[in-house]
Amino acid sequence: MPRDDDTLFDALLARDPAYDGFAYVGVKTTGIFCRLTCPARKPKRSNVVFFSCRDAARDAGFRPCLRCKPLAVARPVSGALEALKDRIKDEPDRRWSAADLKALGYDPSTVRRAFQREYGVTFVQYARSQRLGQAVNRLQQGGTVLDAQLDAGYESGSGFRDAITRLIGDAPVRTTARRILTAQWLDTPIGAMLAVADDAGVHLLEFAERKALPSEIKRLHERVGAIAFGRHAMLDALAEQVGRYFAGRLAAFSIPIAQKGTDFEASVWAALQQIPIGQTRSYGELAREMNRPEAARAVARANGANQIAIVVPCHRVIGADGSMTGYGGKIWRKQWLLEHERRMAQTSSQS
């Protein structure tokens, strides 16, 4: 990733998220340093100086920006988003409305955009998914349909049955006989990820903005089983490992992988996990390492079919000329992940 001052200034003007955490800008006229993604008005080229880390900016006498919070590990998100997520967690059975948001002092349209931007769903949809997940979990644990209905906040039994049927494809009274996958949102420094798992392991881990996510969820539902939001020990373990990875303290994941594919796809996904952190491969190189030198295109297709991002590191595959090839989670995230891992590998080699 180029880091000369002219490139960094262009990145500052574009608010390029690929440099978030890897470059900071100090504004001489204010004495403040910021992320390159800071939404504040952009300074003149002559009034800025760039730093490779936060400590260097502070050592030079710059103070952290209160708006973009460069000292925080996670990128700043809407305060309403964080506060309302906590409210949903504290009141999982509540049926939220626009009037409720207004009563708390929030603008419903602003909240809707914040959740849509971060998770791909509105606030009401997010809250409903958590509530229905609670209800499905209650039924799976042997609770009655009436209890689950009341927990989910439905006054109408038919309305509850319809909602559960849409969610898991079966009537509530029969959910105990169905395999249910559990979903959770994981927040990371580069965006929210949807995680889906069961006792066998992780079935899906994708960024919320991935265009193929809806079709991946549909395929997972058809191949494995219904999906409901809730708590699961496998997801707790995944969240802990993902958190350590983004903090630079985990180079290899140990969480079980349970995604289903053809034998060839599974062999490609296994080969991806063998690429050392801080290194990359082209499709041709990966095919040769698998003793399938003629299968570079098939390797590329299998790489694209992977639906467990980061843990199965498809982002470590680049073009034969070193270029960034397509990445469903967006190219800037691929650049970010590769730079993050390059630094982790460098730190490990020096220790």
Rank of each mutant, 00 (worst) to 15 (best):
G31R: 06
A251G: 11
A11H: 07
T30Y: 02
D170Q: 01
L167V: 09
Q149K: 15
S97F: 08
G31P: 07
L81V: 08
R87L: 11
A195W: 10
R117H: 01
A239V: 15
A298P: 02
R113P: 03
Q149W: 10
Y126E: 01
K334V: 12
D198W: 01
K260M: 15
A309H: 05
A251R: 02
V196I: 11
Q140E: 13
A135G: 13
P276I: 14
P39M: 00
F51I: 10
A127G: 08
Q350F: 15
G284R: 03
T7Q: 09
R223A: 15
G159S: 03
I180C: 14
P64E: 07
A309Y: 02
R94N: 02
G133I: 01
Q140K: 06
H315Y: 12
A258I: 05
V111E: 12
P108A: 10
H232Y: 11
G230Q: 09
S156G: 09
R288H: 14
V299C: 06
G278P: 03
A152M: 14
F123G: 04
R174N: 13
M344H: 04
D90Y: 10
S52I: 10
R54N: 08
I88H: 08
R342G: 14
W336P: 11
M290P: 14
A98G: 08
I88C: 05
I257Y: 14
L213G: 00
D321A: 08
G248Q: 14
G326L: 06
K260I: 14
N291E: 07
L204S: 04
Q130S: 03
P39Y: 00
T188M: 04
R138S: 05
N137W: 07
S215F: 03
R249F: 04
W96K: 05
T175P: 04
A197G: 15
D10P: 00
G61H: 07
W269G: 14
N137H: 10
D236S: 08
A226N: 13
K44S: 04
R288P: 13
C68R: 04
L338V: 15
T29H: 03
A135V: 13
L286N: 13
K44R: 03
A197T: 15
G105C: 10
T37N: 03
R112M: 09
G326T: 03
R297G: 15
A192E: 00
A226G: 12
V224I: 09
A60D: 11
Q307M: 10
F246P: 11
M1C: 12
G304K: 00
R35M: 07
G328F: 00
L8K: 02
G248M: 06
